[in-house]
Nucleic acid binder design. Structure first.
Lengths: 174, 174
DNA sequence: TGACATAATGAAAACGACTTTCAACTTCAG
DNA sequence: CTGAAGTTGAAAGTCGTTTTCATTATGTCA
């Protein structure tokens, strides 16, 4: 099992490859290119870590030159998912969808501290293998999975014991 | 790995034990007993398989003698979860939460056919062990997990190949 | 290059799953 | 039995997301 760094956001070269991929999908679906869509794609693909639609809109609004309407972001994100550029995650999804880049990134799952919101991204090949075995055993062709582990991280466990509830640092994101 | 039968709904004796457990939680939280709450608990605990809040309300409304308001169901279900009687599942959760009984039932995860909605409930101890290892390795105390596999079941795969899209039977539940 | 068909966009309304508010009704300890 | 406090249904409110519609942008074909 390995811990992966939290998504660092695509650099300019990777971004160009991603946008090219997006254009392929757009073409294949008989859609038209649009600059707003690429602005949204750029924001999503260069975002560091997990993001909500709101994060993206705020980020876009913060940039004085561009300004994408939330409804448009809602329209574009599924296309980015379809293009295999980003994917939905459960992480802290109490309210609203969350996404992260998956383009040019290794598959991984999440271990989440429910006290402070810390997220460990891990890759555990042994579990992946067992999942495939299991699906095969039941005659399923596997297309995806959700695997998220919840618990209490060591610092939270300790500060819980010490102070009876106070967290050691940042609060859960939602 | 083992396949489990889909939740068959509690019999009268099990139901009584569950309601007793509920009363414990109610007492512990300084709440009062209520017949409506027990009617809802009864409906949830005897429900066969996965259910949505809407399923429950409809079921309750169908019964001429009792009639629980949706808002009340929304209030009661979290209490049943807290009492360890039911738990939330992801299964086909495109719209709205879904639950299933977990009281006096073995832990299991889900393998879901995204074409026809078939759900295989499985218990795979090897994966559970690896999950615990992983959490420990990162210093987490594990409190829960979500593990759901998505794919295409054999019948769907075959009718896909044969007819180019038609399903072999029941449609996805949502 | 200009014109047309069609997709994309923003704004606002609609939607749907919940949650909250509040007045009337239970429950239960004293 | 009585009062304090929890519970309920009904209706209104919240919030993420989707849809509608008029306007704007894109791309193709003369």
């Amino acid at each position: 099992m390995r811990r992966l760094p939290t998504s660092p956001g695509l650099d300019e070269r990777g971004l160009q490859r991603a946008l090219e991929r997006l254009r392929e999908v757009v073409r294949a679906r008989g859609l038209k290119n649009s600059s707003v869509r690429e602005i949204i794609a750029r924001a999503a693909l260069t975002y560091e870590g997990h993001f909500s639609i709101d994060d993206l809109v705020r980020g876009l609004r913060g940039d004085a030159l561009v300004d994408a309407h939330p409804a448009t972001v809602y329209r574009v994100l599924p296309l980015l998912v379809e293009a295999g550029l980003i994917e939905a995650t459960l992480v802290s999804s109490k309210a609203g969808s969350r996404y992260e880049r998956c383009f040019e990134r290794e598959h991984h799952d999440h271990l989440v501290c429910t006290k402070c919101g810390t997220v460990v991204e891990f890759c555990f090949e042994a579990i992946e293998v067992l999942q495939r075995d299991l699906a095969e055993r039941f005659g399923f062709e596997l297309t995806g999975h959700v695997h998220e582990l919840f618990g209490t991280c060591r610092p939270c466990k300790q500060s819980d014991k010490a102070s009876g509830g106070a967290t050691h640092g940042r609060a859960p994101s939602r």
